[in-house]
């Protein structure tokens, strides 16, 4: 079954992105992740920043998942305002993994994406990053490690927590590390 995907805006004016291409990537990732929910993708092309969030309307498979991304999250950083397939796959993969997590009962306590603290956000990103790596989407592990150190501290202990989180596959919200 093909996942139903809508992308807004349908036409981009400030960046050279193609809504159909974005929808195709989302469909492909949905099948890779085993997500069958309808997907509504909203891209804010007015800002070059790259904040992302996912909102799930409910936890069953017919509830719509809304993915909100600032344009920088899909961008070719070597050719600004142009689309990057690889970057888009990583960003969308990340935010869709989060949405998938939110469908689990043990993520019911997770605050909305935009209400997460920086540390909560980063810990969840790292948990997603490791899974993206195993899905073959090529995230830069050192970048995630640096983000994690920035939030949790520059120490060997923190690096150990990072390594555990990166290799984890079946965590609930309360399994994610919190700032001591």
């Amino acid at each position: 079954m093909t996942t139903h995907v809508t992308v807004m805006p349908e036409q981009f004016t400030l960046v050279a992105y193609d809504a159909n291409r974005i929808a195709a990537i989302v469909r492909d990732l949905a099948s890779l992740l085993g997500l069958s929910n309808p997907m509504a993708v909203e891209v804010d092309e007015r800002t070059p920043l790259s904040k992302m969030s996912a909102v799930v309307a409910g936890t069953s498979s017919d509830h719509t998942i809304t993915l909100r991304l600032q344009s920088g999250a899909l961008e070719d950083t070597k050719h600004l305002t142009n689309f990057s397939e690889a970057h888009a796959r990583r960003s969308l993969g990340q935010v869709m993994l989060r949405a998938k997590d939110r469908l689990r009962p043990d993520f019911a306590d997770a605050p909305d994406d935009l209400a997460l603290t920086n540390a909560q956000n980063t810990a969840w990103d790292v948990y997603c990053g490791g899974r993206l790596d195993r899905l073959g989407l090529d995230p830069i592990q050192q970048g995630y490690r640096y983000d994690f150190r920035n939030r949790f501290g520059f120490s060997d202990e923190v690096d150990c927590v990072f390594d555990q989180l990166w290799s984890a596959d079946d965590l609930g919200w309360h399994d994610l590390p919190t700032v001591p």
Partner: peptide
Amino acid sequence: SDWMGTEIGQFQ
């Protein structure tokens, strides 16, 4: 850059 997780040429 390496320490922070950036690849050479990653940005224009």
